[in-house]
Design a protein around this nucleic acid. Sequence first.
DNA 1: CAGTGGTCTAGACCACCCC
DNA 2: GGGTGGTCTAGACCACTGT
Lengths: 244, 244
Amino acid sequence: MQPQSPKYEQIAKEIRKRIREGVYQPKTAIPDQNTLADEFGVSRMTIKKALDGLTMEGLIYTRRGDGTYVLGDIPLKIDTNSPAEEHLGLTAELGHDRVTSKIIKFAIMFLTDELMTHLKLKKNEPVFDIIRLRLVNDKPYVLEHTYMPQKLMTDLNEQVLRHSIYSYLKENLNLKLSGAYRKIHADLSNDFDIQYLNCQAGDPILEVEQVAWLQDGTPFEYSFSRNRYNARSYTVLDISQPTA
Amino acid sequence: MQPQSPKYEQIAKEIRKRIREGVYQPKTAIPDQNTLADEFGVSRMTIKKALDGLTMEGLIYTRRGDGTYVLGDIPLKIDTNSPAEEHLGLTAELGHDRVTSKIIKFAIMFLTDELMTHLKLKKNEPVFDIIRLRLVNDKPYVLEHTYMPQKLMTDLNEQVLRHSIYSYLKENLNLKLSGAYRKIHADLSNDFDIQYLNCQAGDPILEVEQVAWLQDGTPFEYSFSRNRYNARSYTVLDISQPTA
DNA sequence: CAGTGGTCTAGACCACCCC
DNA sequence: GGGTGGTCTAGACCACTGT
């Protein structure tokens, strides 16, 4: 019991566990909110908040006037490799030791109009222009082209790039990213892709174009991640609001 | 003022409007929760719930001990054509009169193992096997291959397919979809794509593979939507939880 | 009708930020 | 310190579902 996490989180965690272990079975009702409030010794509002979270995760659903039910597994989701819900970077996603990086470009450039818009910078402000090939178990995985404002990270160096930019941000600069907007495209492989990703001319590429920002909305990254088309897919869970 | 929508929704709507109209400016603080509670004549919890929604939409951010601030526009988001957040179908997304459909296949088939898993059906249960070319302003837009359990929609017909399956579900069967899980791939165009989407041999395709389900978790659609690579992109807004 | 979840209140305490 | 947002309570009323 960590007292640092709020009660509704602890309760959500416990209910998640009961669902996972089959105490609460798919398509059946779980105890009503008053019963749960008694069991956990909290008010009903707190139970409600815990259940709201689980609803957003697609684990349960509620019917006003009826009850709260467990939703079965989502078929496509089971055999999916990368959740990709969090944008914590490749290192966090796949584990520390398996991911390495080959630095292809590490330069400072000045602004094009497009970068000015996406990074919300003024003319003549310098940005890092970084191209890295990320390898998983020494096999080429993704080609990442990243632009970051120089003023936010003055002592960025090659050592950092070889590991993880995100952990550098978090541990050295105490910056946390808080949001990202992504556009997923399909594209034709270019010479760069062919050279570094070991793909054939004409192979399709899955490209994720991303703007990521800090809590106050300051953009700190504009990037393109290019994968061979059969190496990765991007997954999304979308739960509708019953209010709409 | 619609009394049918909860107070926190109405308040969220009003604050959204103030942000849009510049009453609350980007990067500046909005009034604190107590002040807003007084202004709207509600309790602070209700204000909090309204603000939580706006936080999830990426409009504001809160700092404990400090205040609530307006987040500026998200650059990439501005010039994006299709929000694609809601999976209400193409007709709802683009307007009623512009979308037409050419029916390429409309058959009933029995289950493959893959469909059995994705639609959670038992052996020998029939499913509709539908292929439609959706056109926007008479131009080929997306090739949709859809599988649906027959038992859920017994009187599905060609007339429905020519318009919108989703509005048929909603209006005739009173079924609402409540969630979807998607995998976005890049793929090589196949003969079908070349024939119907007017693309060249070797063109990449953006494919969205989707399982969609009703409120109780019953899957009612497993589909593949294939777009020409330069015709559409898929967009995602991802807001991190500060709890994590 | 009884029982359920959805909303809302008035107040409380705490963690946190800035001065 | 004083002011902020995050959590939590005990109770209330309502909307809705089943019977």
